[in-house]
């Protein structure tokens, strides 16, 4: 779902570029709070992980395959600011070194895949964390729902950009319906994989999952009597 050159007109591409640059600048400050002086190597390795995770394709149906976008996954694992940085770097490297996604559409791609999925995913996740029972077991389902919501949200923003900068006389209602329907299916795949990945990390190293840290801090030490015979 990387947008190529020529899909949106020049003003829209430049505008999304400005949005993306601003968001990345803000994230650079935020990431220092999440990772202090470890930012460069840690974010670099997490970006590599996101890239590797995106290489795995899964069948979506009708003979096509989709791959993980990883916005919500990265946000829950390493925190929203670092996630924005990681995804932006991944998208830039893909555009400059792998010809995946147009060079004039870098801003659009960062806005859609880097910012919208992370912001929506993290927002939904934090909301769910507040509502659901405060146990570590709830992190994975919350992350799955967050991932599920984040994909159609990005599709919706893309449709909005297409309405402004696509200048093709298509019936917007039909585009919205098609995009939402299609990306709901992709969202299910994203949700299942995200939930299961988070569940496996939470069971092995819960301290590494950024989204689980407040819950870990609340955990109390359990003491109980054991009958020794």
């Amino acid at each position: 779902m990387h947008v190529p050159d020529g899909f949106l007109d020049a003003p829209t591409s430049v505008a999304t570029g400005v949005v993306a640059a601003t968001a990345v600048a803000v994230s650079l400050r935020g990431a220092r709070r999440e990772l202090d002086d470890r930012t460069a190597p840690m974010a670099g390795l997490v970006a590599t992980f996101v890239f590797a995770a995106q290489m795995i394709n899964f069948p979506v149906g009708a003979g096509t395959s989709g791959h993980l976008m990883g916005g919500a996954l990265a946000a829950v694992l390493v925190g929203p600011w670092t996630a924005v940085l990681c995804l932006s770097v991944v998208l830039t490297v893909q555009a400059l070194l792998m010809a995946d996604g147009g060079i004039t559409a870098i801003g659009t791609n960062i806005t859609l895949i880097g910012i919208v999925t992370v912001a929506v995913g993290w927002g939904v996740f934090v909301l769910l964390r507040r509502v659901l029972p405060k146990t570590v077991a709830m992190v994975a389902p919350a992350a799955a729902i967050a991932a599920f919501v984040s994909v159609p949200a990005a599709a919706l923003v893309f449709t909005g950009l297409f309405a402004v900068g696509g200048n093709v006389p298509v019936d917007l209602g039909a585009v919205v319906t098609a995009m939402l329907g299609w990306h709901t299916v992709i969202g299910i795949g994203e949700a299942v994989v995200t939930g299961m990945v988070i569940a496996s990390v939470v069971s092995a190293r819960p301290d590494l999952v950024h989204g689980a840290r407040p819950l870990l801090a609340e955990r109390e030490l359990l003491t109980r009597k054991v009958q020794v015979t």
């Binding site: 390795l45 995770a53 899964f58 990945v197």
Partner: peptide, 25 residues
């Protein structure tokens, strides 16, 4: 590629994340 094996795949990705993170450290 098969959805039947997603749980295994997801655990591998989880392991890959932990390995990448620890490599970063």
């Amino acid at each position: 590629r098969s959805p039947r094996h997603w749980p295994v795949l997801a655990r591998s990705l989880g392991a890959l994340f932990i390995r990448s993170y620890e490599r970063g450290e």
